[in-house]
């Protein structure tokens, strides 16, 4: 190692010693302590925030993804509302999303008190006219007991799905809808002025042009027939007036009528039908049953 005498080395050691003596370590320690303390407080605050987040975030997520769906499922979603329309009446109802529905006579509509699921789904039995509020994120589905499904985002359409009939019809007034039947992969997208007819026996679906005025006149209290067969007319009349109508003889069913009725009574209408075709009709009074209820009035139409 270097052991050579350097005349300055002792001098510099002594200088070093003297220089060190001039430095006030205690004062600078105070400065450093302040810095350490403020840094620690900053860290404590950040730690506090982090801990708070660590506790709150799982709570929030639990609420958002576990509790809320469960609460919704068990609570509001299961609570449904059913609106039923009596014979001869058109009932208008407004759904929770603001969509408007006109329910034709002897129809019922079931919908959730709040639309919380991905799709807005309602169940319909009978005939209804839907004016759906547009919501691109939530489909609007109409299901019928026979498994027909009408799906749309925001349109106006008429669904005719009376259980008693063997055809179901969907007529589109505005926008577009998708119609599908149960147990059938067939899906039809309707354009304005078209209607889909589903034959419930065969499950076949066909699309044809439709007169939306005729199909939807009922919601404005009108009965519009354009070359309508008598058996169809009888069915509509029986729903509107709450009576049973029987046609005697197959020939009758082939008669076609074109007419528009608004506030005519049942007798007025029957008289008009009688005048334009060779038929007669008879009305049977209501009968009281053993259990003190009454039967419907019965009307029999015969050919002359």
């Amino acid at each position: 190692m270097v052991e050579k005498e350097n005349p300055d080395s002792l001098n510099s050691l002594l200088e070093n010693y003297e220089k060190q003596k001039t430095i006030d370590a205690a004062a600078d320690w105070k400065q450093l302590r302040k810095r350490i303390t403020s840094d620690r407080n900053k860290h404590l605050f950040l730690n506090y925030l982090r801990n708070a987040a660590a506790i709150l975030l799982p709570l929030f997520l639990t609420y958002q993804y576990v509790l809320q769906p469960v609460l919704n499922r068990s609570g509001a979603t299961k609570e449904t509302v059913t609106v039923t329309s009596a014979p001869g009446m058109v009932t208008k109802t407004i759904l929770p999303d603001g969509s408007e529905v006109w329910l034709n006579a002897l129809s019922s509509l079931t919908y959730p008190q709040r639309f919380t699921e991905k799709d807005r789904t309602v169940q319909l039995s009978g005939e209804a006219y839907f004016k759906v509020v547009s919501d691109k994120k939530h489909r609007f589905n109409v299901e019928t007991p026979d498994g027909m499904n009408v799906s749309a985002y925001g349109t106006e359409f008429n669904v005719n799905a009376y259980v008693s009939e063997n055809h179901h019809e969907v007529t589109l007034a505005k926008g577009n809808v998708e119609v599908s039947a149960k147990e059938s992969p067939q899906k039809e997208i309707l354009s304005v002025g078209e209607k889909a007819v589903i034959n419930l026996q065969t499950g076949n679906m066909s699309v044809s042009p439709a007169d939306t005025y005729v199909e939807t006149a009922w919601k404005d209290g009108k009965m519009v027939f354009r070359r309508e067969k008598l058996d169809k007319i009888a069915e509509k009349l029986s729903r509107k007036f709450g009576v049973n109508i029987c046609l005697e003889g197959d020939r009758l069913k082939e008669y076609e009528y074109t007419a528009t009725f608004t506030d005519e009574t049942l007798e007025d209408i029957l008289d008009l039908l009688k005048r334009s075709a060779p038929i007669t009709y008879s009305i049977f009074k209501q009968k009281q049953l053993d259990n003190e209820t009454f039967t419907r009035r019965e009307i029999i139409i015969k050919s002359k």
């Binding site: 190692m1 350097n6 080395s9 510099s12």
Partner: peptide, 8 residues
Amino acid sequence: LSFLLLFL
């Protein structure tokens, strides 16, 4: 000192 030598 032997150390101090080196850097002087």
